[in-house]
Design a protein around this nucleic acid. Structure first.
Lengths: 342, 342
DNA sequence: ATGAAAGCGCTAACAT
DNA sequence: ATGTTAGCGCTTTCAT
């Protein structure tokens, strides 16, 4: 009669069919008070019959909220990215907020386009990860826009921005110290993509540990990588072909550690008997290679979950973005052992 | 003057400031014709000044389109999931469509709730992956809703639904045949999650190859896995502790193959000298383990890309969902070798 | 407890 | 080439 065939039922169709006003229907579908149970029931029933679903766009327009969160990332490790997504999604579950993903291939593309992208997608807020989240241009743009945003592993010293971090420097120090305690004196590092703040911090922690142990820094023992398996493989080959090769190699993430491990296998160097290798992050990959990686567990899932939590508070309650520091753990497995004697 | 402070500029603000009608502003921001270059320029400029961004909700409401695509998946392999996402996103780039992710933990939760979720999120269409996309309940629900959807690796025999697939049975046959040609007569398989159609097809291909080679099927050589690394590890341990252990093991995906490989390492069984292991999918993991996996390359990225393409056609042009079959490749690396003699 | 009317900010259809 | 007028389907006052 009133409902046109082939079109989705609207709030008006339901109101008419149930013999109430649209406001009452609205109340029912938003679980608001001031509706008699009897009528509430009736409206629900009619809604069901007409298979009514509130129109999201209309609701968003009236409420001025899209319930859309964007996750921007630029990370070569699938395991890392998945953790990030699942963590954020865990916090979002049951809130009505949804997650949109924005993998960024080229940072240059996103510089100056971040805010437009957010507007164009109608996002209520964004979660940003390294290295973007420490890029001054992007950060400035975000700050100026007054859009709600949080960062995962972003520099906490930036004023007025929230970030969920671990102490990368201390973690790298602890990891290096562990290796040194095993008796290694010739230890190398494969540095992560240097535009990542964490890569720099990890390098600092490493250097501090060596210094504390009285070991002279040596440029040849610091190789630049890019957080990818491939870069780890190449770095490993270079280090292991070195005339006076290291007995231990620290990689700035697990993917690169797996690459170094593969280089060791290629050269038939037994791990950990002749060479110790350690990673960082404790992603799923750390347990999939052989021997399993000794590494630092960075709680990526929890960090993302926490970031989403902070963001939601910011969006819904206008609470200023807070910063949180989570703890890390040294996870001892079998890829690192005592330094070879002789 | 007219623009309230602290609020986002609307199309009206821009129109007033530029001395034109809102329709003209609309034309400019939608790159429609029939606006003098001079005015177009002026409007753009004013828009810039007021930092005007069209309101997405309003636009969606008027256009009856959200430009949101949902990707539903339930897959334990991070590498697989990432490929899927990146593939779909590649096709979506530049179209204005965005990708929302819906990892499904428990299929029971989504049964009967899929369509409501889609409505609640205002999606224009969805991409569904196994095993959900072959679940009769879910498929029926989707079909009845008339929502645009495509499936990746879904059963192509279902009438009226599009799906992008490879020939899993033939691929598994080829893979098994390759192994048999290396002289193996005692070969086992680790089956994937049996609710996945591809797991069943791969098993069939495997069996057909054995039969063609005149090898008797043996229940102990077919172990149930779940497509996870852990399940592969456990299956590997069982198979390798068998009194008369296999000389070759086919795993239904790379993650499980990596698990089997780890079991071999634990037991100090040299691969491929004493044991050959092959995977399926050729995800990034296949090259990260040692020795690198001989496997079937399933073009997940391209499949997702193609699926997105089909979906877009369906949404924008009402084209009926098509089905596409992509080709696979046997990728020979080092995890499989000649059968040990004696 | 319920409803009427006025937006929300845009696009579509139809003038001019 | 440009503008006017209705919607789009919902939520928000504000009455009653």
């Amino acid at each position: 009669m009133t409902k046109k065939i082939g079109k989705r039922a609207t709030i008006r169709d339901v109101a008419k069919a149930a013999g109430v006003s649209i406001k009452t229907v609205s109340r029912v579908f938003n679980d608001e008070p001031n509706v008699r149970d009897e009528i509430r029931e009736k409206v629900r029933q009619v809604g069901q019959q007409l298979s009514y679903h509130p129109n999201v766009a209309a609701r968003n327009l009236a409420r001025r909220r899209s319930h859309l969160i964007g996750l921007f990332f630029e990370n070569p490790s699938p395991a890392y990215v998945t953790e990030l997504q699942m963590g954020a999604l865990k916090r979002l579950r049951g809130t009505g907020y949804r997650l949109l993903i924005f993998p960024v291939e080229d940072r240059a593309d996103i510089r100056g386009a971040m805010v437009s992208t957010v507007y164009a997608s109608g996002l209520d807020g964004v979660i940003v990860t390294p290295p973007m989240c420490d890029d001054p241009v992007i950060l400035e743009e975000l700050l100026a826009s007054h859009l709600p945003f949080v960062r995962v592993a972003g520099d906490t010293s930036v004023h007025g921005t929230g970030s969920v971090v671990i102490d990368d420097e201390a973690a790298a120090f602890d990891l290096a110290e562990y290796v040194l305690r095993l008796g290694h004196r010739r230890v190398a590092i494969v540095i992560g993509d240097e535009t990542h703040r964490s890569a720099r911090l990890r390098l600092m922690g490493f250097r501090r540990a060596l210094q504390a142990a009285g070991i002279e820094p040596e440029p040849a023992m610091e190789i630049q990588g890019a957080f990818t398996f491939q870069s780890g493989l190449e770095a490993g080959r270079r280090l292991l072909h070195h005339a006076n090769r290291p007995t231990a190699i620290l990689a700035s993430n697990d993917d690169m550690a797996a690459g170094v491990l593969q280089a060791a296998h290629e050269l038939r160097i037994p791990v950990p008997q002749k060479l110790s290798i350690v990673g960082f992050d404790d992603t799923a990959l750390a347990q999939m290679v052989w021997p399993q990686l000794t590494t630092i567990r960075q709680p990526i899932f929890e960090m993302a979950e926490r970031a989403a939590d902070i963001l939601l508070k910011q969006i819904e309650k206008g609470v200023a973005s807070e910063t949180a520091k989570l703890s890390y753990d040294l996870v001892i497995r079998s890829s690192a052992g005592e330094a070879p004697t002789g």
